[in-house]
Design a protein around this nucleic acid. Structure first.
Lengths: 184, 184
DNA sequence: TTTAAAACTTACTAATTAGTAAGTAAATTT
DNA sequence: AAATTTACTTACTAATTAGTAAGTTTTAAA
């Protein structure tokens, strides 16, 4: 049985991914969970506290997945990573980066920092996978691993944004092209 | 001398690109232009009317640019297109697609349609440039031109989003990689 | 079993939101 | 010069927003 706090985080996560951070309110959560507005404020005094908790939860889940994949060849780790985006695409959801970076300047300093940390951590992981993958000749590309990591994450992020507008097949089309460019 | 209506559209465009559609209000515009709230409602009865006008203006400007470039070789058209994103990146602004697609489901049907139209038109132009460019051997890539167009626009869109969080150099790093993959 | 801490609800507030109705001034047309 | 249209302002409203203060119930500890 999930705690109320966890239910709030999960629902906030969903609302951020579907409607956006500035387009959901405590009232939306209260109504859906059959609790009162103030109950949310008890767990998360201000909205940024909830936003930060959602980010921390997402990062914990990502780190857990990365650890599970750690022993796999780098090209397979990459495919697993892409697959998580594919799942989101089918649910008509977007990633937290895609949802939160457009509204970035409306956030509190503490939340901006969390968003920055998340982006940096994802890019760092991708950079390492791409670097080792190239060393072991599991993937191929020109230029610096960091730069390629930026391209990959940027493409995946936007593929979710575009999928909701242009149709769900957009994700597959973009990720296919992305993989093609990385084939050894 | 710009009309009040045009000033409202221009300021709304800037606010959408910096703060996001759901994070700016008629009051923000009224204060900056030293007019009253109701003056904006006179020109744009509901917020979606203003949003749609911003989109139509952007599309008109884009079509004008495309026409100017029409005689250039396709790889140069592509570089010009990327350069417009580079300018936005330096201004810490994002493209309308990047700003509006995350909030897509909170829009009215009429505005959703406009966003869809804009995305479709940009992708269509890019598809044609990439197709002709490959025929003339000015650019090279595997797969369908439409799929490659999706990848290109997705990368550019997200490069602006990431630039504000990870630093302005991100745009250059991503677009460099993008061009590398298209080199004949 | 009393105490106390945790997890809420009730009942608000002050600010902001999009949007409207009625009136006014300025420009344009007749 | 009179009539009309355009471009506003004044003065609101009803709903929603994040957030708070004080009280109540539930859970757990001493």
């Amino acid at each position: 049985m999930k705690s109320t706090k966890q239910k709030i985080i999960d629902l906030a996560d969903e609302l951020i991914r579907t409607r956006g951070y500035n387009a959901f309110s405590y009232a939306d959560i209260a109504a859906q969970l059959h609790i009162k507005n103030a109950a949310i404020h008890y767990h998360f005094p201000i909205k940024a506290d909830l936003g930060i908790s959602v980010l921390e939860h997402e990062m914990a889940a990502m780190r857990a997945a990365w650890q599970q994949w750690a022993a796999l060849p780098e090209d397979e780790q990459l495919q697993k990573f892409m697959h998580t985006f594919g799942i989101k695409s089918k649910e008509a959801k977007i990633c937290l980066m895609g949802s939160l970076t457009p509204d970035y300047i409306t956030f509190t300093a503490a939340m901006q920092e969390k968003v920055e940390q998340m982006c940096a951590e994802i890019i760092q992981w991708l950079t390492q996978v791409l670097q080792r993958g190239r060393e072991k000749k599991r993937v191929m590309y020109e230029g610096r691993p960091y730069d390629r990591a930026l391209l990959v994450i940027a493409s995946l992020q936007s593929s979710l944004l575009l999928s909701r507008v242009m149709g769900a097949q957009a994700f597959g089309q973009i990720s296919q092209q992305l993989l093609q460019d990385l084939r050894p």
